[in-house]
């Protein structure tokens, strides 16, 4: 079994009968172990919802989600989070303001059963390019890029195989984005990680991924390789529109 992630005919809903939103409609995709897979499409197209369904943040779903060959049920156990971790877009919202970097990382490690916490915190900080000086800082003492490094360190703490990245650099300056994207590439190589990355920026997805799914109105229109995308070999006209809009932003 060499698929890290397999999704078949996934439907995801929000709300209830009164106002039911069918956010993802019969979506299917397969991400090979060690691959980096992108999800692109305009806002509201269902990209984040796919990641949320995987991590258990969108409980109303049907269809099949398999992680490393094992189908997921309604609940996610500790073991799941040892395999799959997520990094969110907004580094300002994703860290608790009253928790120091040390607390965030120590607690996560403790929760996952590690006991050599001191060494691991130091190692994690080093892995994400933050020196030991950052260990006892609080979020308000960190820049956006530094916060995102902490969020990545926290995601790496349980030693996952798969990282789900939801617009991880959209809130950052391009110079900081470059540092974070380089860091993510290095980490993927060093730890043999599989990435699923959502971005509204096609250039970012093309830089980071080898394949991407194009979404619109909750549906996956097509899955294509980045090489095909670069060569303009698209099966669906919407992909063409998306490519054109990104290349020439001033319509």
């Amino acid at each position: 079994m060499n698929a890290a992630l397999e999704i078949n005919a996934l439907n995801v809903y929000f709300g209830d009968h009164g106002a039911l939103v069918h956010a993802v409609k019969s979506a299917s995709l397969t991400v090979a172990k060690g691959a980096s897979f992108g999800l692109v499409g305009e806002s509201g197209s269902g990209k984040s919802t796919i990641l949320k369904a995987i991590t258990g943040l969108a409980p109303q779903w049907n269809g099949e989600i398999k992680v490393e060959g094992r189908p997921l049920g309604a609940k996610r156990d500790r073991n799941f989070y040892k395999t799959v971790q997520m990094v969110f877009q907004d580094p300002y919202a994703s860290l608790h303001p009253r928790q120091s970097v040390d607390q965030v990382l120590s607690e996560t490690l403790y929760l996952h059963g590690f006991r050599d916490i001191d060494d691991r915190v130091n190692q994690l900080l080093q892995d994400v390019g933050l020196g030991p000086a950052f260990r006892f800082r609080y979020p308000h003492q960190l820049s956006g890029g530094q916060r995102q490094r902490v969020a990545i360190a926290r995601a790496l703490a349980p030693q996952p195989d798969i990282l789900l990245l939801d617009e991880p650099t959209s809130a950052l300056d391009v110079s900081v984005q470059a540092e974070i994207l380089n860091l993510l590439s290095d980490l993927r190589a060093a730890h043999g990680l599989t990435f699923v990355m959502v971005s509204h920026d096609l250039a970012v997805v093309a830089h980071m991924c080898d394949q991407a799914a194009v979404m619109q109105h909750g549906e996956i229109l097509e899955v294509l390789s980045i090489d095909a995308m670069r060569a303009g070999q698209t099966a669906h006209p919407y992909t063409r529109t998306l490519l054109d809009a990104s290349a020439n932003r001033v319509a």
């Binding site: 391009v174 110079s175 984005q177 470059a178 540092e179 994207l181 380089n182 590439s185 920026d201 096609l202 250039a203 970012v204 093309a206 830089h207 980071m208 670069r230 990104s246 290349a247």
Partner: peptide, 18 residues
């Protein structure tokens, strides 16, 4: 700043860091 941008039309292994 320009060098740190990923380019859709010109792939490269690493982005320049300012």
């Amino acid at each position: 700043l320009l060098g740190s941008l990923p380019r859709f039309d010109a792939p490269r292994p690493r982005l320049e860091v300012l």
